[in-house]
Design a protein around this nucleic acid. Structure first.
Lengths: 208, 208
DNA sequence: TCGTGTCTTTACCAAATGGTAAAAAACGTG
DNA sequence: CACGTTTTTTACCATTTGGTAAAGACACGA
């Protein structure tokens, strides 16, 4: 069993670990942790079950590896929000980036959604240690913008949650969206326009 | 095996079916369909597994029964949106009602979310036959309001989806919300104020 | 109290599931 | 090629899971 901590991973190890993780992302994002089986992952990756267990300690290790990779990728856009930039631009850029990620990586979004809906049993520590500090820091930045009069008075925490809710909705509830609207590029552009327009309106409303 | 179609159900039958459905709602909403087990439902309901299978055909029948009940309850508030009422009031009432339902029935919201995330395999027909017509009808109503100049120009379909995304987020992602904000009544009121305020701003923006 | 239909339990079962042992195959490198 | 190492396969195993058969407990009107 190769050690992923050690940086020494042969080409074939990297390729197979990647194949497994990609297949597992399919299966976990579609059925949740408990609903996913190693046989499904094996079938989806075109490898045998024991071979998968040669690369990962077990089912949970695969799930954890996916969640770890997810967290860093997922936090990056929020991290990029710059306190010294123009408030409206920074926030709308974040919204746009999140929308694009929902379009590009819907499986990751659903993997995360499954984990959270089911009570975040495996990712809770990460949320506390990684997400929460970043969230609070960025909320403070937004509050600073509000205090400086650059944004209308609103609740930073719930503003950020609104952005998450709206953007991830299009990935997580894709099945429903697909039934009610169409799924082509044109419809997607309308969705993006609606969401960004909505937040633009909210952020540029005349201060009462 | 008693027939739920027939209206003749003894007191004990009604009570036990209800107990099973309540327990199943716990389990399914937490683990999704595939991740839930009959043993968990049995344990949660305080009944034996064969006894549960005396009241329901099988695992899937329980899930379907829950989804059926869910659909009608869930659609009611949207149904109540009145084309002859004041547009802003009607829509904001709908938002408020949805927020309250997320607070009151988070398990139902998560049951639905699990089903949709996983591709809506069992509820898709219902979405087509029940949700879609109602959705399209109400979108037409909103479009009518817009055409009449009673609402700013926006996309009715995505407006409704925004409402769903924002309101259900607080139930579906409760675990995350609980980590980032607190979960007491005060925080809940702030959430409600934020969401309704957000849509009020959107709906009463000065027409450009 | 007896009998009949309703409800519940006990004792199972076949298939699926996460995981293991060990042999076999493939690989890399002197 | 030869030989140690890495990778893959075959053959299992214990537990869990959805579900069943049949016997027992219970309710309740005649």
């Amino acid at each position: 069993m190769p050690d992923p901590e050690t940086r020494k991973m042969s080409r074939i190890q990297q390729r197979n670990r990647h194949r497994i993780l990609d297949a597992a992302l399919d299966v976990f994002s579609q059925h949740g942790y408990r609903g996913a089986t190693l046989d499904q992952i094996a079938a989806a990756s075109g490898m045998s079950k024991p071979n998968i267990l040669y690369y990962f300690e077990g089912k949970e290790a695969i799930h954890v590896a996916l969640l770890n990779a997810l967290m860093t990728e997922w936090l990056a856009p929020l991290h990029a929000m710059d306190a010294n930039g123009d408030p409206v631009t920074e926030i709308l850029n974040y919204v746009t980036r999140k929308m694009e990620m929902s379009r590009e990586f819907p499986r990751q979004s659903r993997l995360f959604a499954n984990e959270i809906i089911q009570g975040a049993p495996r990712i809770k520590p990460h949320l506390e240690s990684d997400l929460k500090p970043l969230f609070m820091q960025k909320c403070a930045v937004i509050q600073g913008w509000i205090d400086a009069g650059h944004l209308p008075v609103l609740d930073p925490e719930h503003l950020v949650m609104s952005i998450w809710a709206m953007t991830q909705h299009y990935a997580d509830f894709e099945a429903q969206v697909h039934i009610l609207a169409s799924d082509d590029d044109a419809s997607w552009e309308r969705a993006k326009a609606h969401v960004t327009g909505m937040f633009r309106t909210l952020l540029t409303q005349p201060t009462p």
